[in-house]
């Protein structure tokens, strides 16, 4: 994001297309750094003729966002370190008695504060109301304080699988595709929780202010890369769900292992029993506030 803004200020956009998460796309769109997209005219319709915006549905979280995949932030744990009672609830994260050992959590507030409030007894549908208040934010941090000494904070998603493989942590949050690849492709003794997974979208934005010729090339690529079949195809490599509704039935087997991928998708009904869908507007609006508090809290 920093580089994009710097490019915008310097008037030298060297990127044609940027891969961002949903919440970032809202910020970029709000700042005018991303181009607004007319999804129906610029993107391919579904094979049955459903327009692109209907096919993508809720995943179009801002006017600039071209969704690509659905992923979730969830928790993985070391099978050999949790004894006979593997965790089934997200609140195991905060249960140092039942699951002693280190945890790895994201160095950003997203997901951490929601889980903290949920496990502090806030009903799921009130979490964002509570989090919008200063007291609610303090409450979330107070809950996180109870495990702060046992937390290793990650800033790159690859760290948690590495820490799990080392046995350095007993459990840690990361993206579901990372856990899938550690479990299925690398055969690590790791299990994963789907409870209270934070569903999020990843996709493209086009930087504002691209010259015509580059823009045409980019739109051409996007039209191809986000059509129904292409989105379904990428699921053969990692367990991230396609953002289009029409792609879901086309999800096939893993490219190398040959196992069906559908059960590993965060959107699979069996996995999606207790899901947080990231509240983008909330995060776009409150990110600065909560982030500042969170970072100050971390540094204590």
């Amino acid at each position: 994001m920093a580089k994009l803004r710097a490019m915008n200020e310097a008037g030298n956009i060297t990127w044609d297309l940027v891969d961002v998460e949903g919440a970032d796309s809202i910020r970029l769109c709000d700042e005018g750094l991303a181009m607004e997209i007319d999804h129906d005219s610029m993107l391919a319709a579904a094979p049955d003729g459903t327009s692109a915006s209907d096919d993508f549905g809720d995943s179009i979280v801002s006017d600039c966002f071209i969704p690509q995949i659905v992923f979730s932030t969830t928790v993985g744990y070391r099978l050999d370190m949790v004894g006979d009672t593997p965790p089934t609830s997200i609140c195991s994260l905060f249960d140092l008695d039942a699951y002693p050992g280190k945890r790895a959590l994201n160095k950003r507030p997203l997901a951490n504060v929601e889980w903290a409030l949920l496990c502090d007894g806030v009903p799921k549908d009130e979490i964002y109301d509570v989090l919008a208040t200063s007291e609610g934010q303090d409450r979330a941090l107070a809950k996180l304080d109870t495990i702060k000494d046992s937390v290793i904070w990650w800033s790159a998603a690859a760290e948690t699988p590495q820490l799990l493989a080392d046995g350095e942590i007993v459990m840690g949050s990361t993206y579901n595709g990372r856990l899938f690849s550690a479990i299925a492709e690398q055969n690590q003794p790791i299990g994963m929780l789907w409870d209270a997974q934070m569903l999020d979208f990843d996709g493209w934005i086009v930087p504002a202010g691209l010259p015509e010729d580059r823009l045409a090339r980019v739109m051409d690529f996007l039209n191809f890369a986000t059509d129904t079949q292409r989105l379904a195809d990428q699921a053969a490599y990692i367990s991230y769900g396609p953002a289009r509704a029409s792609s879901a039935p086309l999800v096939g087997n893993h490219a190398e292992l040959g196992i069906p991928m559908a059960p590993h998708m965060p959107t699979d009904p069996a996995n999606a029993q207790n899901v947080f869908v990231t509240q983008y507007e909330f995060w776009a609006d409150y990110r600065d506030d909560i982030d500042a508090k969170f970072q100050a809290w971390l540094a204590k």
Binding site: R27, D30, E31, G32, D288, D289, A292
Partner: peptide
């Protein structure tokens, strides 16, 4: 409309927390 208000909000947030979200939600 010039979409600079969110940046101002982020900026002022470091002076008094809560300003950023105020600007962002209000703008919308």
């Amino acid at each position: 409309e010039a979409k600079a208000h969110t940046r101002l909000g982020s900026r002022l947030n470091y002076e008094q927390s809560g300003i950023s979200s105020l600007f962002r939600t209000s703008g919308r």
